[in-house]
């Protein structure tokens, strides 16, 4: 517990009179974006790629053509038996995922203004998966793109852990030169589903 009482008492004495909460009016920011166009532009700007797919295509076959020679693949989508070369049942510690090459996850939400895609741990059983994998593939429906973060938060309800991912991991800590592939995924591919 530590100094809880003392800190709260001090804040109570020192805080100003109550100031009202401002109201967020998302229409103020609305530019009438073409969602798919803007989303694609932003994903590319942050170093990711968008690949459109149609419903008759087999997702895992498409991914295989994108990443032909990878050893350890794991997908949480349906019909992944022939794609998956790794079984999570044998994983006891997150460390054991270190050599994962390709991870495929389904996402319920993308944001046009910044190319961010939401995933939460109801769709992946071990939290480190989307970070430890070398290549991350996210499958998103075209109709699941919202314009701004304001609309995105309207749809996010219950999750234990969730993350907005915008592009592959990166750093510019050495003389401001951008390097893709810091600690997280080295590449990010978004399969945009026409549903």
């Amino acid at each position: 517990m530590g100094s809880r009482t003392e800190i709260l008492a001090k804040i109570k004495t020192n805080k100003p009179n109550l100031i009202e909460t401002p109201i967020i009016e998302p229409q103020v920011f609305d530019e009438g974006l073409n969602l798919i166009e803007e989303f694609t532009k932003k994903v590319e700007a942050v170093g990711g790629q968008v690949v459109p797919i149609t419903y008759e295509m087999d997702i895992h076959t498409e991914i295989k053509t994108l990443f032909p020679d990878t050893a350890l693949n794991f997908s949480t989508l349906e019909k992944a038996i022939s794609f998956n070369t790794l079984s999570l049942d044998n994983i006891e510690k997150p460390q054991e995922l270190e050599d994962l090459d390709v991870l495929v996850l389904e996402s319920p939400l993308g944001v046009a203004e910044n190319g961010a895609v939401w995933v939460n741990d109801t769709s992946f059983p071990i939290r480190v998966l989307p970070f430890i994998t070398k290549h991350l593939v996210l499958v998103l429906g075209k109709n699941d793109i919202v314009p701004y973060m304001h609309q995105a938060y309207d749809t996010l309800n219950d999750f234990n852990f969730g993350v907005f991912i915008s592009g592959p991991s990166k750093t510019a800590d050495i003389e401001q030169s951008l390097v893709i592939g810091a600690h997280g995924a080295l590449s990010l591919t978004i399969l945009l589903k026409n549903d």
Partner: peptide
Amino acid sequence: GQPITTYSSHFKRPA
């Protein structure tokens, strides 16, 4: 100048 950081991680409950 990025539109958002690469990862915006929302922690709510421990795994």
